[in-house]
């Protein structure tokens, strides 16, 4: 039953392409999702995250390519492929005239092997125990999101796909979800595929992140890698000085020095920082502090995707 590709990935997107009319919305996207990882799917608004997810779960037909889940093609063996997938696509809309519990009960009937006990378990887990018998109509956005998560993990999927799951959750809820997703991946070997544009979130919860822009995959990187980047000249330092203008004049653009709020910033590693510091002190300026500025994934992401531009 369990079929892993030779490289240990449980899900493969193979040259997935979506064209609507003459527009190419997803362009030849290939991606392997390894087992037991939280995999982030990052991209600015309109880059095609939701469209990709819709194709992965069979809501939209692929123009070209295929998605293979545990050895089954979504195109040709949909029922087998989707059997071990749990998902929330965009907002978790439920039947408003039913209670949260009845919603879960109903979805549980569509997949064999979900006991009432399991339903109670997930209700407890997502923290909806007190309100589960109320009509969904009366739920807040965050509560609906939690119900959506319950619905998605109820049948213990091996692939959990969540489209912007933190949308509408409060900080505590986000944290809980993050911890829970990490736990699912680590302890139960579930592959979690999360899309988001909350970039700082991704850094905290993902093992690996794929970045998509305008329907094209532009990068896949392990989160650990970003920390190593500083040595390679990617780091920046901030200098807190008494006369920033004089300091800038003194440096004359060395090490990419430029004005920053309350001081100046340079680009370069530790050696560069020490050199700049010596220069400033010798020039009679007072240096109150030097801080290393780690380039976060967010900065890198904005750099790569060109900021806020929606394509």
């Amino acid at each position: 039953m369990e079929k892993l590709a030779p490289n240990g990935s449980i899900v493969q997107l193979k040259n997935v392409t979506k064209r609507i009319g003459r527009r190419t919305i997803i362009d030849d996207l290939s991606l392997d999702l390894p087992e037991a990882q939280v995999f982030g799917f990052l991209g600015p608004n309109g880059s095609g995250k939701t469209t990709t997810i819709r194709m992965m779960v069979g809501l939209m037909a692929m123009t070209e390519g295929d998605v293979i889940i545990r050895g089954h093609s979504v195109r040709d063996e949909f029922e087998k492929a989707i059997r071990h997938v749990g998902a929330i696509v965009e907002n978790p809309e439920m039947y408003k005239y039913l209670s949260g519990y009845d919603n879960l009960l109903m979805f549980s009937r569509m997949i064999p092997g979900i006991t009432r006990q399991r339903i109670d378990e997930v209700v407890e887990l997502v923290g909806l125990k007190g309100r589960i018998h109320d009509k969904v109509r009366t739920y807040s956005l965050g509560m609906r999101q939690r119900l959506g998560v319950a619905q998605a993990i109820m049948h213990k999927p091996t692939l959990l796909i969540l489209d912007e799951p933190t949308n509408g959750l409060d900080p505590a809820g986000i944290r809980e979800l993050r911890d829970y997703l990490r736990k699912l991946a680590k302890e139960e070997g579930i592959t979690v595929f999360v899309s988001s544009h909350l970039l700082s979130e991704m850094e905290l919860m993902c093992d690996r992140v794929a970045i998509i822009q305008a329907g094209k995959l532009i990068d896949v990187r392990d989160i650990g890698q970003t920390a190593d980047a500083d040595g390679a000249g990617g780091a920046a330092f901030f200098f807190d000085v008494d006369k920033p203008e004089d300091a800038l004049a003194l440096l004359a653009g060395a090490h990419g020095a430029q004005a920053a709020e309350g001081g100046l910033a340079i680009v370069g590693g530790r050696e560069a920082a020490a050199d700049v510091n010596a220069l400033l002190v010798r020039g009679g300026l007072r240096v109150y502090g030097i801080r290393m500025q780690n380039k976060s994934l967010e900065d890198q992401f904005l750099e790569m995707t060109g900021g806020e531009r929606i394509v």
């Binding site: 809501l59 029922e79 997938v85 998902a87 965009e90 809309e93 439920m94 569509m110 997949i111």
Partner: peptide
Amino acid sequence: TSGTIKLLLIRPWS
């Protein structure tokens, strides 16, 4: 209209 179709169609049923 309600969007529930998405949750309905991602079950192991044709």
